[in-house]
Amino acid sequence: MNTDTAPAPLNVTLVVGSNRHGRFGPVVANWLLDRVRRRDDIVVQVVDVAEIDLPTTFARSAEATEALRTVTPKLAEADAFIVLTPEYNHSYPAGLKNLVDWHFAEWQAKPVGLVSYGGMAGGLRAAEHLRQVFAELHAVTVRDTVSFHNAGASFDDEGRLRDPSGPDAAAKTMLDQLVWWGLALREAKDRRPYAA
């Protein structure tokens, strides 16, 4: 392998997983995007479930086709994903589940970094449920996550973290792992197609 040439940046799709009115997700997403955009080894685009109108039944319709026409290419083009999820009732939101379930091949043989937020548990139960789902879809979740416990109190009124040291370090670790897995899987798929 030629080590003189840096690999092309990883195409990462950030999935914002909440569509509730008054949601806190955009605050966390903006903080995360600020960290991701500082890196030269990642190019990021966003898929926000609040901006997608996927039907909840899996019948192909004109409505579903139009929604998929805009979102599916963003998932298919990605080398890796970051999934940002709140925790609702000890799991992740229905809108996120709907987005995940409308796709299959788009997730395969790609890494997923998990960022969660919530109350005392920081959304970690939602993240753990997503690990099981992505394993079924042949995706690889990276070990380290970023979680915000009592998320609302962690940020000020302008959306800045009151104490960024822990989350910044966690984000760097998660992103470093995501890039490693993303590059490794991209190189492997270039040599040999993934067989599901």
Rank of each mutant, 00 (worst) to 15 (best):
Val12Gln: 06
Tyr194Cys: 01
Gly25Thr: 01
Arg23Thr: 00
Gly159Glu: 07
Ala188Ser: 11
Val47Ser: 05
Gly182Arg: 01
Arg186Ser: 02
Val46Ala: 11
Ala94Arg: 09
His90Thr: 14
Val179Ser: 13
Tyr88Val: 01
Asp176Pro: 11
Phe24Ser: 06
Ala126Leu: 00
Phe58Asp: 14
Leu14Thr: 07
Gly95Val: 00
Tyr194Met: 05
Lys74Leu: 12
Pro86Trp: 07
Ala169Phe: 08
Pro7His: 10
Val28Trp: 00
Ala67Pro: 10
Thr85Lys: 06
Gly119Gln: 03
Ala135Glu: 14
Ala67Arg: 13
Asp34Thr: 09
Gly17Tyr: 02
Ala8Gly: 09
Arg35Tyr: 12
Ala105Ile: 02
His129Ser: 13
Ser154Glu: 13
Pro167His: 13
Lys74Arg: 14
Phe134Asp: 02
Lys110Phe: 06
Arg37Tyr: 07
Glu77Ser: 14
Arg38Met: 06
Leu99Val: 03
Val15Ala: 12
Lys172Trp: 04
Ala135Arg: 10
Leu175Met: 04
Arg37Asp: 01
Gly182Trp: 03
Arg186Ile: 03
Ala29Arg: 14
Thr5Val: 11
Asn89Ile: 00
Gln108Leu: 03
Met174Lys: 03
Arg162Cys: 11
Val71Thr: 05
Trp102Asp: 00
Ala59Met: 15
Arg160Trp: 07
His149Glu: 13
Ala126Cys: 05
Ala76Glu: 13
Gly25Gln: 04
Ala196Glu: 09
Arg35Asp: 11
Leu33Phe: 03
Ala171Cys: 12
Lys110Asn: 08
Thr3Ala: 12
Thr5Tyr: 08
Gln177Glu: 15
Tyr88Gln: 04
Leu175Cys: 08
Arg186Gln: 01
Gly123Tyr: 02
Pro9Gly: 10
Val27Asp: 00
Leu54Asn: 09
Asp41Ile: 05
Arg35Leu: 12
Val115Asn: 04
Leu175Tyr: 11
Leu137Val: 09
Pro111Glu: 01
Arg37Pro: 00
Gln177Ala: 09
Thr173Pro: 00
Leu33Asn: 06
His90Met: 13
Gly123Ser: 00
Phe104Thr: 12
Arg35Lys: 15
Arg160Asn: 15
Asp53Tyr: 13
Thr70Glu: 12
Glu63Cys: 10
Ala171Asn: 13
Ser116Gln: 01
Val12His: 11
Ala67Glu: 09
Val28Cys: 02
Glu128Trp: 07
His138Pro: 00
Asn30Ala: 13
Leu175Pro: 08
Ala94Asp: 06
Val46His: 04
Thr5Cys: 04
Leu54Met: 10
Ala126Gln: 01
Phe104His: 14
Ala109Cys: 08
Asp168Leu: 07
Gly17Ser: 06
Phe134Ile: 00
Gly22Ile: 05
Ser165Ala: 15
Ala62Tyr: 03
Ala59Thr: 12
Ser154Tyr: 02
Val133Met: 00
Leu130Ala: 08
Trp180Cys: 03
Pro55Gln: 10
Thr3Gly: 03
Val16Met: 14
Ala62Met: 03
Ile52Tyr: 03
Gly95Arg: 04
Gly118Pro: 08
Ser165Gln: 15
Pro193Gly: 08
Asp168Phe: 03
Pro167Val: 12
Asn2Thr: 08
Arg60Cys: 15
Leu178Val: 05
Leu185Pro: 01
Glu106Gly: 09
Ala151Glu: 10
Leu175Val: 04
His90Ile: 11
Ile52Ala: 07
Thr5Trp: 04
Phe148Glu: 08
Asp79Ser: 13
Gly17Asn: 04
Val43Glu: 14
Gly159Ser: 08
Ser61Cys: 11
